[in-house]
Structure formats: C-alpha cells, structure tokens
Deep mutational scan, measured.
Amino acid sequence: TEEYEYTDEQQAREAAREWREKGYTVTIEEHNGRWRVKTG
C-alpha cells in the first residue's frame, strides 16, 4: 500500500483515476482538509 497526500481534491481525484486505470485498488479519504489517496 502506498499513500499520497494532496491539498487539492481535484488533484487527488485525478491521481486516483490514473491509478485505477493501471489496475490498482484506490481509496480516497479526506482528512483535516487534505486528501489521501491510498493504492493497494
């Protein structure tokens, strides 16, 4: 599992979409105004 943090929701969603296209399972969670994208 890798985790990436973004301050911008749009960036987080874009990144998540790219990971999904590569076949990863992706979770996005908002935490204190930051967006965490977890792949695994």
Rank of each mutant, 00 (worst) to 15 (best):
K22L: 11
Q11M: 11
Y6G: 02
V37L: 09
I28R: 00
R36T: 15
E9H: 06
V37A: 01
N32S: 07
Y6V: 02
R20S: 10
E29D: 07
T27H: 09
N32T: 04
E9P: 06
K22H: 06
G33P: 00
W35I: 02
E30L: 12
T39P: 09
Y24D: 02
H31S: 10
Y4C: 06
V26F: 02
V26P: 03
T39D: 03
E18A: 13
A15W: 04
Y24A: 04
R36K: 14
Q11K: 09
G23W: 02
Q10I: 11
Y4T: 07
W19I: 04
E14V: 08
R36F: 15
Y6R: 00
T7N: 12
A12R: 00
Q10Y: 11
A15K: 10
T7E: 15
R17H: 09
H31P: 01
E3Q: 10
E29F: 13
Y4K: 07
R13L: 14
A16R: 01
H31K: 11
N32Y: 06
W35G: 00
T1N: 12
W19L: 14
E2Q: 14
V26K: 00
R36S: 11
R34Y: 11
E5I: 13
E21Y: 06
E3A: 10
E14I: 09
E5A: 06
T27L: 08
Y24H: 05
Q11T: 13
D8V: 05
H31W: 10
T1D: 11
Y24C: 03
N32Q: 08
R13T: 08
E21D: 12
T1S: 12
E30Q: 11
E3M: 14
E9D: 03
T7W: 12
G33T: 02
W35D: 00
A15E: 04
W35F: 07
V37S: 00
E3F: 15
W35T: 00
G23R: 02
R20W: 09
V26G: 01
E9T: 02
R17T: 07
A15D: 03
K22M: 10
W19E: 02
W35H: 01
E9I: 10
D8E: 07
E21W: 05
W19Q: 04
G33I: 01
Y4Q: 07
Y4F: 13
G33Q: 04
G23N: 03
Y6E: 01
N32C: 04
T25Q: 11
T39S: 06
Y24M: 06
E2Y: 15
E14G: 05
R17F: 07
E30S: 08
K38I: 15
E30V: 10
E3T: 14
G40R: 14
I28A: 02
G23I: 01
W19G: 02
R13Q: 12
E3Y: 15
R36N: 08
V37Q: 00
E3C: 15
R13S: 06
E2M: 15
G23Y: 02
E30G: 06
R34D: 03
T7H: 10
E21V: 07
D8W: 04
R13I: 13
V37P: 01
E29K: 07
R20T: 11
H31G: 05
Q10W: 13
T27R: 06
E14H: 08
E29A: 07
E29L: 09
T27C: 05
T39V: 15
Q11E: 14
R34G: 09
A12T: 02
N32E: 11
R20M: 13
G40V: 15
E2F: 15
Y6M: 02
K38V: 15
T25H: 13
R17W: 07
E29M: 09
T25P: 06
G33W: 02
Q10S: 12
E29Y: 15
N32A: 07
E5S: 07
K22Q: 09
Q10F: 12
Y24F: 12
G23L: 02
E9Y: 13
E2A: 14
H31L: 11
E30K: 10
V37M: 04
A15T: 05
Q11R: 08
G40S: 15
R13W: 10
W35S: 00
Y6N: 01
E5L: 11
W35M: 01
Y4P: 04
T39Q: 06
T7D: 15
Y6I: 02
Y24T: 03
R17N: 10
E18V: 14
D8M: 05
K38F: 10
T27Y: 11
T39K: 14
R34P: 01
T27A: 07
V37F: 03
V26R: 00
E2N: 14
H31V: 14
E2I: 14
Y6Q: 01
K38D: 05
R13A: 08
G40D: 13
E14Q: 11
Q10N: 12
E9G: 04
V26L: 02
T25E: 11
K22Y: 05
R20D: 04
W35L: 01
G40N: 14
E18D: 09
D8L: 05
E9M: 06
E2D: 13
E29V: 11
K22C: 03
G40Y: 15
R17P: 01
T39G: 05
V37R: 00
D8I: 05
Q10E: 12
G23H: 02
A12G: 02
R36M: 14
Q11N: 07
T27D: 06
I28V: 12
W19Y: 07
T1F: 14
T7L: 13
V26H: 01
K22P: 00
I28K: 01
R20G: 06
Y4M: 09
E29Q: 08
E3H: 10
T1W: 15
R36Q: 11
W35C: 01
W19T: 01
E30P: 07
D8G: 04
G23K: 03
T25L: 11
R34W: 07
E9V: 07
T39M: 14
R36Y: 15
D8K: 04
W19K: 04
R34T: 13
Q11S: 14
E5G: 05
I28H: 01
K38Y: 11
A15I: 07
E21I: 08
A12Q: 00
N32L: 07
R17S: 08
E18F: 15
E5D: 09
V26W: 01
A16G: 05
E14A: 12
K38A: 07
T1M: 13
Y6H: 03
G33H: 12
H31R: 10
Q10A: 13
A16W: 05
E18G: 09
N32K: 08
T1E: 13
E2L: 14
H31M: 09
V37G: 01
V37H: 01
I28W: 03
R20P: 01
A15G: 04
E18Q: 13
R20H: 08
H31D: 10
N32R: 05
A16I: 04
K38H: 10
D8Q: 05
T27P: 00
D8C: 04
E3N: 08
E5Q: 06
G23Q: 02
T1I: 14
T25R: 09
E18I: 14
R20V: 12
T39I: 15
E21G: 06
T39N: 05
E30R: 08
V26C: 05
W35A: 00
E30N: 09
E2S: 13
Y24W: 07
E14N: 10
T25A: 09
E5P: 10
E29T: 13
G40E: 14
E3L: 12
V26Q: 00
R34S: 09
R17Q: 11
G23T: 01
R17I: 08
T25V: 12
Q11V: 09
E14L: 09
T1V: 13
E18Y: 15
E5T: 09
E29P: 00
T39R: 14
V37T: 02
G23M: 02
R36L: 15
N32M: 07
E30Y: 15
R13Y: 11
Q10G: 10
A12D: 00
A16D: 01
T25K: 10
E18P: 04
G23D: 02
E2G: 14
E2H: 14
Y4A: 06
R20A: 13
G40P: 06
E18S: 11
E29S: 11
T7I: 11
W19A: 05
V37E: 00
K22T: 03
E21N: 10
R17M: 09
A12N: 00
Y4V: 08
R34Q: 08
T7A: 14
K38T: 14
K38Q: 09
I28S: 01
E3K: 06
Q11W: 05
Y4S: 06
E14P: 00
T7Q: 12
G33C: 04
